[in-house]
């Protein structure tokens, strides 16, 4: 199985050279294998969200290399980085980060707005995803009127609309009860069965104790403490 993402000695320093300098990630070298579910686990402040952002091309490392599909993206110009982000990754954020005031349909299709994809194709793709996530009846509803679980499903739908190879989720169950967390894991498992690579940053044992997790990377103080392939 090949590595869809590989990092080599990646570090991320905020406020470098200033009094409030923070070394959020320090010399991390990991591999995310294609088609697997990988969990970045660790307590708050361990650097897992920062690492997730780095491998998802949301920010650049201060040091080290990041390979996505074999290409070093650490020094790519912003425009190319955006293309990699759009084509390769789908993001599910801790706070869902849906655009308030827009409907489910609009939120889900938002990533495709600047692309040249045909409108009908966009609609078809959106309908398929909404059906999979049992959101069809909610397509015209303002996201502000949805429950937390429904909002998360909309966030998942938005992450899937680009048909990305990798789905990155940051603390996805932080605001969900046990039942909704289980629902989320069922969706993620189904996505993984469809061939998606999943990376989840979490400190929720409900997730990293599951038997279908392939790879757990434990982080502490910005560094990898332990990595285990299950």
């Amino acid at each position: 199985m090949d590595a869809v993402i590989r990092t080599e000695g990646v570090s991320k320093v905020f406020n470098a050279g200033l009094a409030g300098e923070i070394r959020a990630v320090s010399g991390v070298s990991i591999e995310i294998l294609r088609g697997q579910i990988t969990v970045l686990k660790g307590p708050s402040g361990s650097g897992k969200t920062t690492l997730l952002g780095l491998i998802g091309c949301m920010s650049r490392p201060t040091e080290g290399k990041i390979f996505v599909e074999g290409k070093d993206v650490a020094k790519l110009p912003e425009r190319f980085l955006t293309t990699v982000r759009r084509k390769t990754f789908g993001f599910i954020f801790q706070h869902f980060n849906l655009i308030r005031g827009l409907t489910v349909r609009e939120n889900v299709m938002l990533p495709l707005y600047p692309t040249e994809i045909d409108g009908k194709q966009m609609e078809r793709r959106m309908e398929e995803i909404l059906e999979k996530l049992e959101l069809t009846a909610k397509r015209g509803v303002n996201v502000g009127k949805l429950s937390g679980g429904q909002q998360q499903r909309v966030a998942i739908a938005r992450a899937m609309i680009n048909e990305p190879a990798v789905i990155l989720a940051d603390e996805p169950t932080a605001h969900l009860d046990t039942k909704l967390s289980e629902d989320f894991l069922n969706i993620v498992t189904a996505l993984n069965m469809d061939g998606k690579t999943i990376v989840i940053a979490t400190h929720d044992p409900l997730i990293y104790d599951k038997p279908y997790i392939d790879h757990v990377i434990e982080m502490r103080d910005g560094a990898v403490r332990e990595a285990a392939r299950l």
Binding site: M58, E78, R79, T82, T83, R85, R86, F91, F93, N97, I99, L110, P111, Y113, P114, R158, N162
Partner: peptide
């Protein structure tokens, strides 16, 4: 600012946001 960040995160380019 939050909305611009979301748009960028889901794949909008800087030029798309400016547009």
């Amino acid at each position: 600012r939050q909305e611009i960040g979301i748009l960028k995160a889901i794949g909008w380019e800087t030029s798309d946001v400016l547009q």
